[in-house]
């Protein structure tokens, strides 16, 4: 049975390091991991936003985790 996980690529995997995303998809297919992309996920602030607003940083992260929950995914 495939292991189902919510997938959050992060900012870098979709921008500067696209090779990470290229490799992740086939590797998960081989190992039987089903990646379910979190719908409408946003940037998580990357600890950079925390320097000016810790509240916004936590809100961005909590929103992404809450979106994963709406898909019924635990990790």
């Amino acid at each position: 049975m495939a292991l189902k996980v919510a997938y959050y690529p992060g900012n870098t995997a979709r921008a500067a390091s696209s090779e990470v995303e290229d490799c992740l998809q086939p590797l998960c297919k081989t190992l039987g991991i089903q990646l379910i992309e979190i719908p409408k996920a946003s940037s998580d602030g990357g600890n950079i936003i925390k320097q000016s607003s810790p509240k916004l940083q936590h809100a961005l992260v909590a929103r992404n985790l809450a979106l994963a929950e709406t898909k019924g995914l635990m990790s």
Binding site: Y8, G10, N47, Q57, H58, V61, A62
Partner: peptide
């Protein structure tokens, strides 16, 4: 699940704060 240790670290940070 994420491939980035930074993303993962800050997610854990938020989960800790919530708890």
């Amino acid at each position: 699940m994420t491939t980035c240790a930074t993303s993962y670290g800050i997610m854990c940070d938020t989960v800790d704060e919530f708890a």
